[in-house]
């Protein structure tokens, strides 16, 4: 990745007995769209608040272009944030909300008006200048919040699950638009979400967080198909995670599942670190194969159907299939092309 624009170095933050951040490090390059995903309470929001300067870390540093800004106030930082509940000022109009940042930074009235006009056009809300936030729909409010946070031209825009309150159709539409705006402006976006699909859809890189730590970071395709850690595989991937007891490790490059030998890809340097095995979502075929299993669950999900298959004399597998053509209870032949070893989250820090 390119130049390091904003860096978090071993951030630690405690709330009483709870460890919200346990030494998190993260580096953002100029112009990239990074998504930070993880379950609720994993420290995503705290990370954003520390980067925005709304909270001080107990330990660790925040750097902007190599300059330490850990103790810089939020007013002075090159970041702006879109809050989860948006926090649009209810007593101000749309134009006043968007113009608030430039106004506080002393921009002249005429320039401010031009900036507000540009931004509202960018988010598709021209003509809404004099409306109050309360009279807008959920999606329109999101756009106002986005325009307001962009008005100070931040080097990094921090977004805290801003789309989580919208219905699915509207959310998808806005995700695409967010991506378009990010490309158009070239601003670095750090987008926090618990929605894996959103992250996979939008981000250039995805960071997976768990228990206040960055477990793994990489491009979406890699994390989805070839995660390194058991946590990422379970959280992000549609494949099957098998515990070592569910199979037999025959040698360094292959394992045996229900008596059938399966080659092992991406073998880790140190076999002692392996805590689980991953079968990538595209590595299971249902048409023919040496294994047999029974479909124990079938969940239709639109473009793909999720099957849970219990292998005869072996573990349970999860399969995503565009059109499986099998019903629950059916017996199917199965081929597994490859398995991959997974390490524990802590090791890959």
């Amino acid at each position: 990745m390119g130049r390091r624009l904003l860096e978090a170095e071993r951030l630690t933050r405690r709330y009483g007995d709870t460890l919200a951040l346990g030494g998190l490090s993260l580096s953002l390059a100029a112009g990239e769209f990074v998504a930070l995903v993880g379950p609720s309470g994993c420290g995503k929001t705290t990370t954003l608040r520390v980067l925005a300067g709304l909270e001080r870390p107990d330990a660790g540093r925040v750097l902007h272009e190599g300059v330490d800004i850990t103790t810089t106030s939020p007013q002075q930082r090159p970041t702006n944030i879109v809050f989860q509940d948006l926090a649009l000022f209810p007593h101000l109009s749309v134009a006043q909300n968007v113009g608030y940042g430039p106004r506080r930074r002393g921009m002249r009235r005429a320039d401010r008006r031009a900036r507000i006009g540009q931004l509202l056009e960018l988010v598709g809300l021209d003509g809404f200048e004099n409306r109050r936030p309360a009279s807008l729909s959920g999606g329109q409010r999101q756009r106002v919040a986005l325009a307001r946070a962009l008005a100070n031209e931040p080097a990094v825009l921090l977004l805290d699950e801003p789309l989580s309150s919208l219905d699915r159709t509207r959310r998808r539409g806005l995700q695409l638009e967010l991506k378009r705006i990010q490309r158009e402006l070239g601003t670095t976006f750090l987008y926090v979400t618990h929605d894996q699909t959103a992250a996979l859809r939008m981000a250039d890189r995805i960071g997976v967080m768990h228990a206040g730590q960055l477990v793994e970071i990489g491009v979406p395709e890699q994390l989805y198909a070839r995660p390194r850690t058991a946590f990422t595989a379970g959280f992000l991937s549609d494949g099957t995670v098998l515990s070592p007891t569910a199979l037999e490790v025959t040698d360094e490059t292959s394992v045996s599942i229900a008596g059938v030998r399966v080659p092992c890809a991406d073998v880790a340097a140190d076999a002692a670190d392996v805590v689980a095995f991953h079968i990538p979502p595209d590595a299971i075929r249902l048409d023919a194969g040496p294994l047999r299993g029974t479909v124990t669950d079938r969940a239709y999900g639109g473009s793909t159907t999720r099957l849970t298959i219990s292998l005869d004399g072996g573990p349970e597998l999860t399969v995503q299939h565009p059109d499986p053509g099998v019903q629950q209870g059916a017996e199917v032949p199965i081929a597994i092309d490859t398995v991959r070893p997974l390490t524990a989250p802590e090791v890959s820090m």
Binding site: L54, N80, R104, A149
Partner: peptide, 20 residues
């Protein structure tokens, strides 16, 4: 959150009082 938003957008302490 309103106070955090105003501070994030550059409002001084005094401005937090008068604006929010």
């Amino acid at each position: 959150a309103y106070l955090a938003a105003a501070a994030d957008l550059g409002a001084s302490r005094m401005r937090l009082v008068t604006d929010v």
